[in-house]
């Protein structure tokens, strides 16, 4: 376990000395700002129309639902595209440069290497998600009346867990190849498929539909975005992370012993 620390430190250092890291963060922040502004604007417009001709008995549009929740859902889509770019290098690049040979013949265990890499991605993603969550938090601080705080926080948790799950999948696929593009494209395909896993559920029906709904990260995180925290959701994300890291571990062990 101790060996994961130097790997973690090296990864984080590399991320912040290369322009790639700042590029990704800037791009993400730009998209966040754009979408947030858009949603707030739409909410504003709707509110104005509503106050012009209020239907009797109709509820006032809810800020949490209209802005915070849909903002988080949009970030989830951005993550599907962002995470492959973040994780595609991790193992593929090491193998191509020959540094994997260095790690594999050092006293580090493969588990420590994978854990260190994952924690580094988790650290970077935490900063990025914090940057994203800043927008709804601004609304909490300055909105009169602002949105409810709890769904903003639980939504952040959902977003972050989802990001970690996606990162584990990306790491696993990066462990199979020494080509970054192959790693990136396969991660994108898998994550997109996972993201839309629930869409055929309605037409399929039955037990299969239940499974489809359960494995959909958008469904699972959606609960958290609404402020519902359930054990089943947490188990889902922990399993996704575990499976991803386990596959990465196995792929690298096979690489070392081939």
């Amino acid at each position: 376990m101790k060996g994961a620390v130097p790997v973690f430190r090296r990864e984080v250092l590399s991320f912040f000395v290369s322009p790639v890291g700042y590029f990704l963060i800037t791009g993400f922040a730009l998209l966040c700002g754009y979408f947030f502004f858009n949603m707030l604007q739409m909410y504003n417009m709707f509110l104005q129309r509503f106050s012009g001709m209020p239907y009797p008995g109709m509820e006032l549009p809810n800020l949490n639902q209209w802005v915070v929740e849909s903002f988080y859902h949009t970030l989830l889509v951005i993550l599907v595209f962002l995470i492959p770019m973040l994780t595609m290098r991790s193992f593929a690049e090491e193998k191509r440069r020959g540094t994997f040979e260095l790690l594999a013949t050092s006293p580090l265990s493969i588990f420590e290497i994978v854990l260190g890499k994952f924690l580094a991605v988790a650290f970077v993603l935490f900063l990025m998600m914090l940057l994203g969550a800043m927008f709804p938090l601004l609304l909490v601080a300055f909105g009169k009346p602002g949105p409810e705080l709890f769904p903003v926080l639980s939504g952040f948790l959902g977003l972050y867990l989802c990001a970690l799950g996606f990162a584990a999948v990306g790491l696993a696929l990066s462990a199979f190849t020494e080509n970054q593009i192959v790693a990136g494209v396969s991660s994108l395909v898998v994550l997109l498929l996972l993201y839309v896993a629930h869409s055929p559920a309605e037409s399929v029906g039955g037990a299969v539909a239940e499974v489809m709904n359960y494995i959909s990260p958008a469904r699972q995180a959606g609960d958290l975005f609404r402020g519902i925290i359930s054990t089943s959701t947490l188990i889902y994300f922990v399993s996704l992370i575990t499976v991803g890291l386990f596959v990465a571990l196995r792929a690298l062990e096979a690489h070392r012993w081939r």
């Binding site: 060996g3 620390v5 130097p6 790997v7 430190r9 090296r10 250092l13 590399s14 000395v17 290369s18 440069r97 020959g98 540094t99 040979e101 260095l102 790690l103 013949t105 050092s106 006293p107 580090l108």
Partner: peptide, 29 residues
């Protein structure tokens, strides 16, 4: 692995690290 020092055909360097940083990292692992 604890008792060998190994230099592969192509030196396994991390281009984005300085020599001192790199050797510190090696020492730690």
């Amino acid at each position: 692995r604890r008792h060998i020092g190994y230099l592969p055909e192509n030196p396994p360097l991390y281009p984005e690290m300085t020599v001192t940083e790199y050797l510190h990292f090696i020492g730690r692992i």
